[in-house]
């Protein structure tokens, strides 16, 4: 029983990342009708926002203390991060919580990147065949990841979660199991909660605001909305920016779990596409549900008990599920009729 609970917990953080990326993909597809192969690159850019932010606030001021010397005779260099010098304890706090704080930096950056991408490239591809949309965004993804590679190198850059969240929580004791059996890192819990909150915000935005209502109307029938005198394209551009922010935030918060490198976007993108297909193209709840479901399935498949029966199942379980779903329910779990048929 507790082994099962542990695997479900293990799947939640990865599932959260899948769900966030798939949500953005579905949003962009549902509104703009564009298949965005560069969406994974947005996830990666978000992660590198966190890296850059960390490097910026980590800039150090070096002072030489002539009174002390190192064992080999040279004066001791005292390195103090500038932000600590300016802000004192607040600075130390910001330095410790650099990952959550980089969300603040990532939101405007991702909005700008998203808007530039949509206005600069994607808008010219609305009416072109899907194959060309796939190809051009694929090219863009390569360009973005190569640019990141040339600035940050090819090696993963580890990021630390805040000190207080570095430990693991004894979840089992909370649920009345024997303590010590189900231990789970705090940060993964934080990631799951964070992704749930972001997903909730996106849904609330779409369901509860007038803007969201117009966007949903546009998804259903953009021509009629246009006839009401609403510039639906402008709203859809904002939706693209929103999707970029969601993907970017998913990337920012994922950095302590997986050290970011330049090709993480593509790795996640392929899986997220599978998630979208399983959930049903064009269905937002489907994308979220399938994201968490596949994340949990994957963690179950990587249990040693399962692996001893089906070796290598953890590598391919997601693709297998996708193939079976597409054969049994071609529209995916919650796909609607008429979306991407034919």
């Amino acid at each position: 029983m507790d082994a099962i609970l542990l695997q479900i917990l293990n799947g939640l953080d990865k599932g959260g990342a899948y769900a966030l990326i798939a949500l953005g993909l579905t949003l962009v597809f549902g509104t703009l009708g564009v298949v965005n192969f560069a969406h994974g690159a947005l996830f990666m850019l978000g992660a590198f926002c966190a890296v850059t932010f960390n490097q910026l606030i980590g800039l150090e001021k070096v002072t030489i203390d002539p009174t002390q010397t190192t064992p080999w005779g040279s004066p001791v260099e005292i390195r103090v991060p500038m932000i600590e010098e300016w802000l004192g304890p607040t600075g130390t706090f910001i330095l410790d919580y650099s990952v959550p704080f980089s969300i603040l930096a990532a939101i405007p950056v991702m909005i700008v990147i998203g808007l530039i991408m949509e206005r600069g490239l994607i808008q010219f591809f609305y009416r072109r065949p899907h194959a060309e949309q796939i190809l051009v965004t694929f090219g863009l993804a390569i360009v973005l990841q190569e640019i990141i590679k040339s600035f940050f190198g090819a090696n993963p850059i580890p990021q630390n979660p805040p000190d207080t969240l570095r430990a693991a929580a004894d979840i089992g004791a909370l649920f009345g199991f024997e303590p010590g059996n189900i231990v789970y890192p705090y940060w993964r819990l934080v990631y799951f909660l964070f992704s749930a909150i972001v997903i909730g915000c996106v849904f609330a935005f779409l369901q509860l605001t007038t803007f969201g209502m117009v966007v949903r109307a546009g998804m259903a029938d953009r021509e009629t909305v246009g006839l009401f005198g609403i510039d639906i394209e402008k709203r859809f551009t904002v939706v693209f920016g929103l999707a970029a922010v969601v993907a970017g935030l998913a990337g920012v918060m994922y950095t302590p779990i997986l050290p970011p490198d330049y090709h993480m976007g593509m790795d996640f993108l392929v899986l997220s596409f599978v998630v979208v297909v399983v959930g049903g193209m064009g269905s937002l709840p489907g994308a979220v549900a399938a994201g968490f479901m596949l994340g949990i399935l994957q963690s179950f498949a990587s249990m040693t008990e399962v692996k001893s029966i089906f070796p290598g199942i953890d590598q391919i379980i997601i693709y297998l599920v996708a193939v079976i779903i597409l054969l049994v329910r071609p529209r995916g779990l919650m796909g609607r009729k008429g979306v991407m048929e034919g």
Binding site: A131, I134, Y319, V323, L326
Partner: peptide, 15 residues
């Protein structure tokens, strides 16, 4: 067909 086909083949290749 279409995107589904592209994604399916991509998934198989990654697999």
């Amino acid at each position: 067909t279409g995107i589904y086909f592209a994604i399916l083949t991509l998934a198989f290749a990654q697999m």
